[in-house]
Every structure is written in C-alpha cells, then in structure tokens.
C-alpha cells in the first residue's frame, strides 16, 4: 500500500517491576482495515491498546499517526488525534446517566457555556438507537443498567465523535447474540467509511469473520502477524497457546494457489 498507515506502533515496551507486559511490540493499521489482536489472558493486549489510547505511558517505543511521531500524555491527546477507545473495563462513571457518560469530557454547551443536557439527551438517543433500539431508560444512572446496555454506551461514545482509529477491547463480551451481530455490522460499516479498527477478541469466529489481519501476542511479545487468508483457526490457536505456528505451516492462500 502506498498511503501511510493511520497509526504505527514501533518497538513498544511496558514493564511493571519485573513483569514485561508489552515486550518490544510493533504494529500498524491502515485506513479501512480491521486488525484482530489476539492472545491468552494476560498476554498484554489491553496494555498495548491503552498505550495507543494515551491511557498508559510506554517505557520505550514510538507511536506515529499518519507518519508523524506523536507522544500521548493523556487520553485527550489520543482523542484529538482521532483515536477512540472502547475499554475492556468500559470506563463509565456509575452515578451519571447515559448522555453524561457519552459526552463526558466533551460536553455539549449552550451559547452561555451551560451544559446543554437536552441536546446531549437527544443526540444520545439517536446514536444509542443505532446500536440497541430497545434502549429507553437513558436518564437512569448507568449503575442501574444491564451489562449489555453499559457496553452499548461505551461503544456509542467511541463512534459518536470524529473517529479515524477505533480500538475495541473485547467490545462484545457482555452482549447478546443480536447485539453482537449489530456490532459486527457496525464494524463493517465503519470499515467502509475508511476507519481503521483494532479489535481485541477471544472469539475466533468473530475474528475470522471481520478481520483483514491478525496479530497474536504471547507473554507480552508479538509472535505472529498474518493476513487472515494465510492462516487457519488452528494456526492462530497454536500461536496463542504455544507462541509459534505448527511445525509444518505454510501460508494457506499460497498452498491453495499451488
């Protein structure tokens, strides 16, 4: 591809005391591409994503956005660069309602500078309806909502604003089948709009369904980066569990061409 990647992460490292959570990992993402980030529990996926989101400061490494180096001191910096994140923990303020959470940190204001709660409610209604038409109790504190509804708020918050890179850290973990299908459709739609998506998931089916490429992490290291048509589910499983491809592996698409 001739155009520069949306984002590049080069030689990223993060350690906590002796634990190497992210060990010299490099990754890139192009417009309109969905890249699956896989790995066992504790492999370092969330740490890598948080670093790109500006929520965690790496010990070493470089991040480039559209080819130019950036340094994210806090999540606002990443958001300004068009990088939105759905955190695994959802990152919702429990006592606030859905609109307040959706617009937290980016509140809509009236001309006098007051909070424009009416407009935030109306906008929330619109974007939430796109994900879950049954979402009605918008003005309840989110602590009283179901896990799926909370997840939908976190997703809505990430797609409402002018997004160019979307990080989704297990976005469907709490969702039912129809909501999961809705998120899959959403991912395809965002992809067609040219947004780059990093999808962290344990669901092999979703990954093969949605992703153009997969990268696999094992104990903090990047052990594989493949186009989705090069590998089978078993290959990916072997990378996740053992950290290496099966001994007799050849690229699947080349195999088929022979």
């Amino acid at each position: 591809m001739s155009q520069p990647p949306l984002v590049e992460m080069i030689g990223i490292e993060k350690h906590f005391g002796g634990v190497r959570a992210v060990d010299h990992v490099s990754l890139d993402l192009f417009p309109g591409e969905v890249v699956g980030v896989l790995g066992h529990n504790g492999a370092g996926k969330s740490c890598l994503m948080r670093i790109l989101a500006g929520a965690m400061i790496p010990n070493a490494g470089e991040i480039r956005v559209n080819g130019s180096p950036v340094s994210f001191a806090d999540p606002n910096d990443a958001r300004e660069a068009g990088i939105e994140t759905i955190y695994q923990t959802l990152a919702l303020a429990d006592h606030l309602d859905a609109p307040s959470n959706l617009f937290l940190g980016r509140e809509l204001k009236t001309r006098l500078g007051n909070l424009d709660d009416a407009r935030m409610l109306a906008e929330s209604r619109k974007v939430l309806a796109r994900l879950n038409p049954n979402f009605k109790n918008l003005q309840d504190p989110v602590s009283s909502l179901s896990g799926g509804q909370r997840q939908v708020i976190a997703i809505a918050r990430a797609i409402y604003f002018d997004t160019r890179v979307l990080i989704m850290d297990e976005p469907t973990a709490a969702l039912g089948p129809s909501e999961t299908a809705m998120v899959a459709n959403l991912i395809r739609q965002l992809q067609s709009e040219g947004i780059g998506i990093l999808l962290v998931s344990h669901d092999m089916h979703d990954v093969f369904d949605l992703c153009d490429r997969v990268v696999v992490m094992n104990k903090g290291r990047l052990v594989g980066a493949h186009r989705i048509d090069e590998v089978t589910k078993d290959d990916v499983l072997s990378l996740i569990v053992k950290g290496e491809l099966p001994a007799d592996w050849t690229a699947r698409n080349l195999e088929a061409a022979q």
Binding site: P75, Y87, L90, A91, A93, N101, L104, R106, R157
Partner: peptide
C-alpha cells in the same frame, strides 16, 4: 468522585 479512572479515560 463516581469513578476516577473512568473520568480520566474519558478525558476529564
């Protein structure tokens, strides 16, 4: 006060 980490991640 509701969730300090969430607020931070939301850009507060």
């Amino acid at each position: 006060g509701s969730n300090e980490e969430a607020a931070r991640l939301s850009g507060v």
